[in-house]
Design a protein around this nucleic acid. Structure first.
Lengths: 115, 115
DNA sequence: CAGACATGCAACTCTTTGGTTGCACGTCTA
DNA sequence: TAGACGTGCAACCAAAGAGTTGCATGTCTG
């Protein structure tokens, strides 16, 4: 669990707007312009958020001719959850169970569930 | 899962120094002065970090005569983990399991500490 | 009581960052 | 080919945040 990665992940998750963007994209991939259309901020602002989410590894860019579509990737989230389980598991049963849940089985496997 | 709470929690977790402090205190309660002694920053800086961690509900203050001892509380971490499971569970099996783990009976932590 | 020690409060600096506007570039499409 | 549209880049601004120093207050303890 790379510490510098956790840095980028928690940093990315710190902003409410970015969490909102991530939650939205998690349900269905989208472009910066599409996202900006449903938000009170400009496309450029959205683009910056997407950039930091991408740098944190939470999103991947996919060029599609003229536009760029972003899709969510789960791994870094699990990583962050692991950190919490590791820290909190020492004094909380709930987080300890969480640690177990994360420890089991492979990261991402089977076909990605439908959107 | 109060959104404003998640804000404070993720915000608190965003800083590496604060994660370090939280991890340290999780293992053993400590005072600001003690913590500052083992860190490259001043006591006041530590105090500020402890204040935001406390406001996020991740720590509780305990006055002991002259000094103040901080102790970790698990609830908000679980809350943050829930958010991640909720968002990520839709497209990742690992996080979906995490959601299940968190859904089960609460840990030894009683009712969430009032604001 | 007097000194030592921990905390609390405030002002200040410096950097980061979330947001903006403006413009250039690339790619569809009528 | 011309225009419309999405993206990329850069400069700029204001607010937040991490850190500092200085000093006041409160509490042990010799």
């Amino acid at each position: 669990m790379p510490e510098d990665r956790a840095d980028a992940v928690f940093g990315a998750l710190a902003d409410p707007m970015r969490r909102r963007l991530l939650a939205t994209i998690a349900q269905r991939p989208a472009t910066a312009t599409e996202l900006a259309g449903a938000l009170p901020i400009t496309r450029q602002a959205v683009a910056k958020h997407l950039a930091s989410l991408t740098e944190a590894g939470l999103l991947v860019r996919e060029r599609e001719g003229r536009d760029v579509r972003y899709r969510a990737t789960p791994a870094p989230l699990s990583s962050a959850a692991s950190w919490m389980a590791e820290v909190g598991g020492q004094w909380d049963q709930r987080l300890a169970r969480l640690a177990d849940a994360l420890a089991q089985a492979p990261g991402r496997s089977g076909p990605r569930p439908p959107r």
